[in-house]
Design a protein around this nucleic acid. Structure first.
Lengths: 184, 184
DNA sequence: ATACGGTTTATAAACCTCTTTAAATATGGA
DNA sequence: TCCATATTTAAAGAGGTTTATAAACCGTAT
């Protein structure tokens, strides 16, 4: 019987290219949910309500989409971006290839943890634990290549993955390691 | 049947005079739990472990004792201060009169509250509610003369009282007022 | 000369900001 | 080449916000 670590995807970052020379000034003027301050940042921020997301749209036509709760939602949000921008007569690709770049997930081992003991038990090469600076212990895994924030409450944040399975593998791996060390 | 508002005294501030010309430098040198930085503040801070408290000791012999959880503990803490300082051959009064200057208590009405409605219902003369600045509604009572911080959770902080009954009276008074206004 | 604000100590309440991590994107500055 | 700008998100801890109160000292203002 597999334990339930309550793994939940919290944020998906995806990138794509929807066109080749986007007039950001025109979008900023026409779209209420758009923010464009080129002096501060070269991308236009376009917020999508459903599914909830935020897209950074660049003049090159490249787009970064953040804030989605699933890979599927990220694709849908990109679809919305294409629809909105295309509605102003700006040439856009109808079905751009969407590449997932980062997935952030939360998880819960369900038990309180002694982070000092863990820092020592897991070895110091891949661990950073500076409680004065940040209450979470930072653990960098090689396979899958992700970074996990481990908290005293047993909760964790897995980040850096390219697909949902990375988070699951990381959580299971850590649970095994901590069990083997008698730390959970 | 009287409702239980979980009234709890959280802090007692008391003042007294234990002597007439205290050598604060001597105390600072001899006592580990003492802090004395005259450039920053003219009082020496003496921390008491049991009952937990902090005393500000002044050259005049006057003392302010804070942090106690009851009036009795405040008196005991003063007794400890007298004992510690007297042990260095510094002349002190054995049984100084202790005056309670402030009591802070917490309470819980046990129901969620609509602070906007309360601010209007209780009248604006004695009310301050600026949620951007601080989440609690500030209500100044005339009798007893205390100040009550009221939170949306139903929890409250009563401060400014000189005896424990002030907190109880204030909580009961507010509960009556809110009940009469149909706000709880 | 008086008054006020600040310094310090303790304390509850609930809310804010910040801290850290990953990733794509494009621009400026050192 | 690296850092900063911007976007998003979870986790938990720190510091700050407000209120009352005594004490004694400083600076500023009237």
């Amino acid at each position: 019987m597999e334990p339930d670590y309550k793994i939940k995807i919290e944020n998906v970052v995806a990138s794509t290219q929807i066109g080749e020379n986007i007039d950001l000034n025109k979008i900023a003027r026409e779209v209420k949910d758009a923010e464009y301050k080129p002096k501060q940042f070269p991308g236009l921020v376009l917020r999508i309500k459903e599914p909830k997301a935020a897209a950074l749209v660049f003049r090159s036509g490249k787009v970064v989409c953040t804030g989605s709760k699933s890979v599927e939602d990220a694709r849908k949000a990109v679809g919305q971006v294409v629809k909105i921008i295309g509605s102003f007569g700006i040439p856009v690709f109808e079905n751009p290839e969407v590449k997932v770049q980062n997935i952030v997930a939360s998880a819960d081992l369900g038990v309180d943890l002694n982070l000092n003991a863990i820092a020592i038990g897991l070895g110091l090469e891949n661990i950073e634990y500076e409680p004065e600076q940040f209450p979470g212990l930072v653990y960098r895994l090689r396979d899958p290549r992700v970074v996990v924030l481990i908290f005293g409450s047993g909760k964790m944040v897995v980040t850096g993955g390219k697909n949902p399975a990375d988070a699951r593998k990381a959580v299971e791996k850590i649970a095994e390691e901590l069990t083997a060390l008698g730390l959970m």
